[in-house]
Structures are given as C-alpha cells and as structure tokens.
C-alpha cells in the first residue's frame, strides 16, 4: 500500500562546530501513517526533530512538507514559530514542556492561539466582547473538551497542569499539540517514563489520532513495545546516519540494526569512542 507522501527529508546534515550530529539523512514520512525514528542514545533523533520544527537551522538539506491539499512548504526556510502556525507541524518534547502554572484547559486554549487571535480581531473585538469572538471561543472550548474527554482529564480541566501525574502530563502535551490541528504530529519519546498500562493507553491514543484524525505521526521512541506495535514504517539512525529503514519486522531482523544496538565481536578490538573519532574525522 502506498500512502500519499507528507514529509520528505533530503540530505539533512546538522553540524555543531566540529560535531556532526546528523549526517546526510534522507527519509520520507507518509500521510496517515506512523513513522518511527529509533536509534541508540545520541544517534541524532532529537536533532532531526529540532531541524524539522525550526529550532535548528539545518546546515545542509531540504525538508519538504506536502499537505494533503497540495500546498508545499520548505520547512528549512521558515521561522521557528511559522512551522507550527502556517505549515501546521506540531511537536511534543522529550522533557515535557507544559505551561505548569496554567490550568489544563488553558494549556489547550493557548494551543489554539492563532485561530483565536484572528477571531478576536487581534484583541480589538475581543476587548469589547463582540459575538464573533465569543463564538470562536465557544468552539475552541468544544475542541478542548473533545481532547480532554479523549485523554480522560475532563474532570481536572481547571487544575494546574503542573499538578498532573507524569503520564497525564504526557497525554496532555499530545492533546495540546493536537489542538493546533496539525497535519503532522512529531512526538519525542512519548512513552518515556510510562508504566505498561499507560504505555498501552498511549498506543491506543496514537492509533486513534492516525485513524480518526487522518494525519501523519512522526515518532521518536525507545520503547520497542510501542514502536513495534503501532508504527507503519521505521527509520533507524546511528551516529547521525541512517542505517536502516523499512517495516517494523524487517528492521527488527536487520543485522545492521542488531549490531548498532548490541554491538558485535569485531568491535571489541576498537573501543566505541575511537570508532566515533574515526567516523567524525573522515
């Protein structure tokens, strides 16, 4: 089955001084599919995300987002915040970044900022409570309630987000990203620190997002139970390079991947840091 293309990453390279964090990585992510990026620690997964969502400007490379409607965006040329605002790529963070002292509901309302700003006539209509804004706010609250019901936090909507349990905060961050109504959702280790039950709930939520909201999901994950169960396509990075890609089963059985994760006998003669030096020196 060939799903329509959503994101194409070509020759992405990111250098920090002499360190090459991502080295000539190319892959594609399809619409309505979950694409997982896996790899050992320090493989450059989060750097790929940061380039994609505008937090870093890639040294080399082209990042093309093609919306289902046909509009195309060159993400590497856009300002950080415009990737969320215009191209509609939403992301979550490895270390949760909620607005801890704002309420759960407010977190979801902030995510709908741009829509509400327009409806409030850039504050002027809103200041005088014109119906245009009141209706827009009611619709925004409906969307927030929809996601609150989905993640099971409706009853705690008015509590501070910082008071939520860890797993709840993870889910809330995903709901917040979804409230921006994205075409591509990028999740940075959403299952980190979750217990098996929460992890299963997360799988369910991600499949729901893919199937019901019909958007593409890009996923960085260490938890193989999540990756193998839900992803449609897997990309493996190691030392900043793409070493394998394919379906979950094919990647799991790829000897290159197994070697990257478990190491191999020949490598013992050469310690890993020397190996790294050789690679970077090249």
């Amino acid at each position: 089955m060939t799903a329509p293309l959503l994101l194409r990453i070509e020759h992405l390279t990111m250098r920090f001084g002499g360190l090459v964090a991502v080295d000539d990585v190319s892959f594609e992510a399809a619409d309505r599919q979950i694409t997982a990026i896996i790899g050992p620690n320090g493989a450059g997964k989060t750097t790929v995300f940061n380039c994609l969502t505008g937090f870093y400007k890639p040294t080399i490379g082209m990042l093309t987002l093609r919306r289902p409607g046909g509009a195309t965006f060159l993400l590497e040329r856009m300002d950080g915040y415009r990737i969320g605002q215009v191209a509609r790529v939403a992301r979550t963070f490895q270390n949760i970044r909620l607005f801890p002292r704002m309420s759960v509901l407010e977190n979801l309302m902030v995510a709908q900022h741009n829509k509400l700003m327009r409806a409030s006539g850039y504050t002027f209509f809103g200041l005088f409570g014109l119906p245009v804004y009141r209706h827009a706010e009611a619709r925004a609250l409906d969307l927030a309630r929809y996601w609150l019901d989905r993640i099971g936090l409706t009853a705690r909507a008015d509590e501070e987000a910082g008071n939520m349990a860890y797993g709840e905060q993870r889910r809330l961050e995903i709901a917040r990203a979804m409230c921006t109504e994205p075409v591509l959702l990028c999740l940075d280790e959403p299952a980190a620190g979750l217990n098996p039950r929460e992890s299963a709930e997360l799988n369910e939520l991600l499949l729901f997002i893919r199937d019901e909201h019909k958007i593409g999901v890009l996923l960085i994950e260490h938890d193989m139970s999540v990756v193998m169960k839900i992803s449609d396509h897997v990309v493996v990075l190691d030392y900043g390079r793409k070493i394998s890609a394919g379906s979950p089963t094919s990647v799991r059985n790829d000897p290159v991947v197994i070697r990257a994760y478990l190491g191999e006998e020949e490598d013992e003669a050469l310690p890993p840091e020397v190996e790294t030096d050789l690679k970077f020196g090249a």
């Binding site: 505008g54 969320g84 902030v110």
Partner: peptide, 10 residues
C-alpha cells in the same frame, strides 16, 4: 520554547 512549537509568534 513550547510557545514557539505551538506556532505563537514570540
């Protein structure tokens, strides 16, 4: 940083 990720112009 979270604001920027949500498309808010800082």
């Amino acid at each position: 940083i979270a604001c920027r990720a949500l498309g808010i112009n800082p």
